[in-house]
């Protein structure tokens, strides 16, 4: 499914907001995920969400911390990747 980085970012923000129990408008797109308050369980859930929503298996793709520098960076990477 082809999506733009903006659409991807919106979906990511909505899911992170759900995980944290806050409004999506309060999620900063330029902060590292660990500073948003996501823990291991939330992070794994986010990875599963990305796999189901965008058809990308990020779990085994050798991601580094740089890929999660922010939701905006992650959205860019997802939008630019081919479904696996």
């Amino acid at each position: 499914m082809a999506t733009t980085p903006d659409e991807t970012l919106l979906k990511l923000k909505e899911h992170v907001a759900f995980l944290l129990g806050v409004e999506a408008s309060g999620i900063a797109a330029d902060q590292p995920l660990h500073l948003l308050g996501i823990d291991s369980m939330g992070f794994v859930d986010l990875l599963v969400f990305i796999e189901k929503q965008f058809g990308l298996s990020l779990m085994n793709s050798g991601l580094s911390q740089d890929d999660f520098a922010s939701l905006a960076v992650l959205a860019g990477r997802i939008a630019g990747a081919r479904p696996s």
Binding site: H34, I38, D39, S40, M41, F43, F68
Partner: peptide
Amino acid sequence: AFATAGYLMFTP
């Protein structure tokens, strides 16, 4: 934790 198990993988 991040170096061993991966980013944000503190619990494992």
